[in-house]
Design a protein around this nucleic acid. Structure first.
Length: 304
DNA sequence: CAAAATATGTACG
DNA sequence: CGTACATATTTTG
């Protein structure tokens, strides 16, 4: 059974993704290398000098970059990327999703606020796979690399990553085509640019209307994706917690599969779902990017 | 309809 | 720490 869900996403701004949108691709590449190096050499507790050496940038460059990218010092960033830290994001376990509702609208901390409207569509559209829908797409820089942004008339439908390390633009588009094989894809960057800006340029988040997103998936997928929207900014939950939440406690694995099919990465925060141990188990766009997103969110919160 | 495939979780050496 | 298996759901033939 297929349904459409329209979610309006009213968000409190995330500080500083550079307002000018400059040189993000290179910045992310540097961050990516850092995370990869740290993950591999995790045991040896590498010093900043060693990290700088490994990624081929100076210590000063790294410090400035991280400060701008996530608001963190290299040392703090290093900590934000460990397993220990990920575990801490989980701590209240099963109550987390409920707690999100209570805490999300008050307090000094900056949180994502998400309001979701649900709109069902006839089951006959199950096989449509995007039939009859026009999808406009464009490529735009983000803090996590070059992204493909896909939108319908009604709102944002997809975000994917298109960095050279992801296989580039063609691969990213191919990935989107696989999700909606029968939709008509129309290159229209001017049309998708506002979405990219609205999502990744915090200064715009308050000025403009709530972000509309269109989720196209099965009932089960929609339920899972809606649970994702309830996870507070800078926090995380587990596959099994979501399974509990949607009333199918033993379906952790099915939840994982559904989370993996989320087409609107970052906005529907599938990067905030971890294994029960706190381990980063999988991510469509690469574990490194998942780690980067979590580290970035930690940095944003650590600022206040 | 049956079988394969999962971004899991847990138990057992 | 690896391996084995239970499990729910979707996809595919």
């Amino acid at each position: 059974m297929l349904s459409f869900a329209t979610a309006t996403c009213e968000a409190v701004p995330l500080p500083h993704v550079m307002p000018s949108g400059r040189a993000t691709l290179t910045d992310y590449e540097t961050v990516r290398r850092m995370i990869e190096f740290i993950s591999t050499e995790y045991r040896s507790q590498p010093s900043l000098a060693e990290i700088a050496e490994a990624v081929g940038r100076s210590e000063e460059t790294l410090t400035t970059l991280l400060k701008r990218w996530a608001g963190l010092t290299p040392k703090a960033f290093l900590q934000a990327v460990t397993l220990d830290h990920a575990r801490r994001l989980l701590d209240d376990g099963a109550s987390l999703l409920d707690a999100a509702y209570e805490v999300g609208f008050s307090g000094p901390s900056r949180l994502h606020d998400l309001f979701v409207k649900h709109e069902a569509v006839s089951p006959g559209d199950y096989k449509a796979r995007g039939q009859g829908i026009d999808l406009f797409y464009g490529y735009h820089p983000t803090p996590f690399g070059l992204a493909i942004v896909v939108a319908t008339e009604r709102g944002l439908a997809g975000i994917g990553f298109a960095d050279p390390t992801d296989g580039g633009e063609a691969t990213a588009l191919e990935d989107m085509r696989r999700r909606w094989p029968r939709a008509r894809f129309i290159a229209d960057a001017p049309r998708t640019l506002p979405f990219a800006r609205r999502i990744f340029e915090p200064s715009r988040w308050q000025e403009e209307r709530p972000l509309k997103i269109v989720l196209i998936g099965t009932d089960f997928e929609i339920r899972v994706w809606q649970s994702l929207l309830e996870i507070p900014f800078g926090r995380a939950t587990t596959y099994s917690t979501i399974a509990d939440k949607i009333g199918v406690p033993k379906a952790a694995r099915a939840v994982g599969a559904a989370v993996g099919r989320n087409p609107v990465s970052f906005v529907v925060p599938c990067h905030r779902v971890l294994g029960k141990s706190g381990a980063l188990t999988g991510y469509h766009w690469g574990i490194t990017r998942k780690r980067a997103m979590l580290g970035w969110e930690s940095g944003v919160l650590a600022r206040d």
